[in-house]
Lab assay of single mutants.
Amino acid sequence: MAEQVALSRTQVCGILREELFQGDAFHQSDTHIFIIMGASGDLAKKKIYPTIWWLFRDGLLPENTFIVGYARSRLTVADIRKQSEPFFKATPEEKLKLEDFFARNSYVAGQYDDAASYQRLNSHMNALHLGSQANRLFYLALPPTVYEAVTKNIHESCMSQIGWNRIIVEKPFGRDLQSSDRLSNHISSLFREDQIYRIDHYLGKEMVQNLMVLRFANRIFGPIWNRDNIACVILTFKEPFGTEGRGGYFDEFGIIRDVMQNHLLQMLCLVAMEKPASTNSDDVRDEKVKVLKCISEVQANNVVLGQYVGNPDGEGEATKGYLDDPTVPRGSTTATFAAVVLYVENERWDGVPFILRCGKALNERKAEVRLQFHDVAGDIFHQQCKRNELVIRVQPNEAVYTKMMTKKPGMFFNPEESELDLTYGNRYKNVKLPDAYERLILDVFCGSQMHFVRSDELREAWRIFTPLLHQIELEKPKPIPYIYGSRGPTEADELMKRVGFQYEGTYKWVNP
């Protein structure tokens, strides 16, 4: 592979701008107003304001973009700056750019259920340069409990009458099928589907988006991507930290609602779906819905739930269990780990287990898709061969690698495990991989909904998990304890083995 010439960040961002501006969906010269509902909250200060700053800094926003914060707290732009700027990672050389960014910011205080507050917000936006005809993007960085009041008031008082209007809704989209349907029906009564952007930030990850290209742009994968060759698929999300004093919020939802029903299920769809007619948003989402419709409700015998306990040999936070978090209700049975087996009941995947695993306070930070292939028929190497695996590593250190057998150097035919490896950090030294939120917010500006969740996708996802969630809430089974920093409950490994996964433990990928 030829040595790549190092590029400056300015040059890299210039390439990104060229890609972005050559499309006809990006209205570079139009006025846009980006409204952050819930501007005083954690999500706004840690993710949304920093993301908008990065896009502005790199010249990736339309030229005439204004940012308006809205929340109940009586704040000023200076207050917003004070709480969000520490997350910007701005350099001293960017000081003038930073001043320009905050000059485009404003803030309006108001209630979430008060019509007069929204009329005041609308008047404020109209007073901005060309504000009355601007395109408006409303980001709901809010708890779902206020979605209905907020969307109703936005629709009645704050819509642009000339430009387009788009609304970005953060997960969780309800707690179960019934609450999700209620919320979807409410929002759909106010906005068209092409105006609604239900954001799952995992769909903005580079390697998640790469799944489609790997599958449908490489001839070698087509013939082997089926039940005849693939023994099982494992989708993993692991965090090495616990709730760390923020367990009160987590306890309301648990690990299945927080990660599995959305992030992991979306990745499953991209692995299992048929080739779409095109890369058009609805063509892709149509195929994802077909996959979900082929999955039956989760069966309790295919589920393992766990909850982390303190590690007596650990240090600091590792010595504390979930129930030691003062914000967690006493005696909570909320799971911090889950392993679930699903089956896609169609011709391509009949009988292939899709194993979804996620948890907190585990032994490493990792998100990946792992396809394990069947054993080689007619073994001539005296059971020395391990199964081939194709691994798409989402985070950290984005990579695609194939675990395969090669001859060990020497005189004899002794096979050993090795890999074919594409590590993004080595291959793409001159490429700026956008943060997931950067990519998705740019998608909203461009009107691309491919990486957002459609209402029928959402409904099918909740259909699969709601009976299990209701059973857990009714019966309150005690989750299996696992030690902070471990791989999780051993019962999860036993479940995976029972459905056909072979864990060798003899080879570990190392970032080159």
Rank of each mutant, 00 (worst) to 15 (best):
Q161I: 06
S123T: 13
L98S: 03
E3A: 03
R17L: 06
R166E: 00
A2C: 11
L7Q: 15
V213Q: 14
Y249S: 14
N126C: 08
N218D: 07
D58N: 08
V77D: 04
G242M: 10
E19T: 05
S179E: 11
V146Q: 11
K47I: 11
P172V: 07
F237W: 13
L43T: 07
N210R: 12
L61D: 00
A2G: 08
E19K: 04
W225M: 03
V108E: 03
R120Q: 10
E148L: 10
E252C: 08
D114P: 02
I48D: 00
F250E: 05
V233W: 01
F250R: 03
L121S: 00
L211E: 00
A103Q: 13
V169D: 01
M37L: 11
R182C: 02
Y147C: 14
R72F: 04
T151E: 07
A25R: 10
L203F: 15
I52S: 02
W225R: 02
G38K: 00
M159C: 10
G38E: 04
P50H: 02
P50M: 01
R104C: 05
Q28N: 06
E94N: 04
F34V: 13
S8I: 04
D251P: 05
C158E: 00
L20C: 15
S180E: 05
G248P: 14
S123C: 04
P144Q: 15
L235E: 01
E93N: 12
I154P: 02
D100M: 14
D58Y: 09
A71C: 03
P223I: 00
I167S: 00
S123W: 10
V12L: 09
E19H: 10
H186G: 11
S180N: 06
R17N: 09
S157F: 10
E85Q: 10
R9G: 10
Q195V: 05
L190W: 12
V146L: 15
F101H: 00
L20A: 14
F138K: 00
I224C: 10
S132Y: 10
S179V: 06
P223R: 14
E193Q: 04
S157C: 12
G247W: 14
P92R: 06
A115P: 13
S160A: 08
S184L: 10
P86G: 07
S179D: 06
F237M: 04
V213A: 10
S132W: 11
W53L: 00
H124R: 07
I199C: 05
K238N: 15
F66K: 10
N226R: 08
V77S: 09
F250T: 05
F102S: 01
L20D: 04
T91H: 10
S106R: 06
S160K: 04
G110F: 01
F216T: 07
F101E: 00
I80V: 06
G163C: 04
R9F: 05
D100H: 06
R246N: 13
S84H: 06
T145M: 13
R81M: 05
L140N: 04
R9E: 03
G59H: 06
A44W: 04
R17P: 09
N126W: 03
G204H: 14
A127S: 05
G174A: 06
S123H: 07
D79G: 04
S132L: 11
K45N: 13
Q209E: 15
D58R: 03
F138D: 01
S179A: 08
I167M: 13
I48E: 00
K171N: 07
N165R: 03
P86I: 09
I220D: 03
H32K: 04
A44Y: 02
E239L: 09
R72K: 05
I162W: 09
K95S: 08
E94H: 09
K45R: 14
Y197I: 01
Y49I: 05
A217L: 00
S106E: 04
N226S: 13
S29G: 12
A44P: 02
L98W: 02
R257C: 11
R198E: 02
R74W: 11
I162D: 10
R166C: 01
R227T: 09
T236K: 03
V5T: 08
R227E: 02
T10Y: 07
I52M: 06
A231D: 13
I234M: 13
F88G: 02
K95G: 08
Q195E: 09
I256N: 01
G174L: 09
L60A: 08
V150S: 09
F221K: 01
I36P: 00
K205E: 15
M207R: 03
A90V: 10
M207E: 12
F237Q: 06
L214Q: 13
I48Q: 01
P50G: 02
E18R: 12
A115I: 07
G23V: 15
I33K: 01
A217H: 04
R215L: 01
F241K: 13
F87A: 04
G163Y: 01
G245V: 09
E148C: 08
T91G: 09
D200K: 00
I187S: 06
G204P: 13
I35D: 01
N185G: 08
N122S: 10
E99M: 05
K238Y: 15
S8N: 13
G163T: 00
R120L: 09
D200Q: 14
E18W: 08
L190K: 03
N229Q: 12
H129G: 06
I48W: 01
L128M: 10
D30L: 08
I67S: 00
P223D: 14
K205M: 04
L203R: 13
F87E: 05
H186T: 09
A25I: 10
V108W: 03
N210S: 08
T31P: 12
R81N: 03
G247P: 15
E193P: 04
K82N: 09
P143A: 08
T65A: 08
I154V: 13
T51V: 06
Y118Q: 00
A78K: 10
A134G: 12
G59E: 04
S8D: 11
I220Q: 08
E19N: 09
Q209W: 11
